[in-house]
Amino acid sequence: MTSPTSAPVLRQAPAGDGWQRFSPAQRLTRFLVYLAIVAAIVQSLRHVEVIPEFLYDAPEQMVDLVTRMWPVEWAAYGEHVHAPLVETLHIASLGTLLAIVLALPVGVLAAHNLVPSTPLNLFAKLILVSSRSVNSLVWALLFVGIFGPGALAGTLAIAFRSIGFVGKLVGEALEEAQPGPIEALKASGAPWVSVLAFGYWPQVKPAFWSIALFRWDINVRESAVLGLVGAGGIGMALDSALNLFQWDRVALILAAILAIVIAAELVVTQVRKRVI
């Protein structure tokens, strides 16, 4: 690291402006960041509660875990895993669609070149920031509290978490649209909605689809855990298998989750390659 004393040889260089990589102020700032990082690590190491006995026990527990997981209870798939797995996919897909529907108006509202009103832009951005700062598991907890356990809570949790993501990126894509075609449309006297449909939409369409696909991919992963707090899908099957210590079924569920996560990623890369 570049502390102020680490380059003594360089300082002896003649020719007036002897060479150093950073100015003193820059080096001081960086030094402070390094100091803060080290302090945070030391502080965390000293205070975090780690029970050494558990640590010594870990290899044994790992072996135990593997032997309990093997053989995987493949037979339980039809009865106990298939339906919640499909439900997870539904939660992810419906949640993403709902998020897009809800996020588009907010994204438009957040784009300053489309809605030239700073208070409205800020209001939209506030919605987007709150959506993003709450974890989807927390959204799920809230919706379970309101609608009771089940897929409805999960779908809404996915949707509300995704609004911020989709809306922010769509808003940014809109703000980066080339002004040329839009001026031309405005000059021809087109109404606002037509300017949106013919001036902006064609420009942001590729970005929009890639954002939607990307979010769907993330949502497939996230919807798999929502069931741990009761919001439907495969996570609920995982939760009950864990509570009953059915580790062979846990292994099956993990394999199923892995399969849909990989499948979703493959779908997204293929669609992206062909369409966008």
Binding site: T2, S6, A7, P8, V9, L10, Q12, A13, G18, W19, R21
Partner: peptide
């Protein structure tokens, strides 16, 4: 460390 001999600099 960007610590080159002073001859080089």
């Amino acid at each position: 460390r960007r610590s080159f001999p002073s001859d080089d600099v």
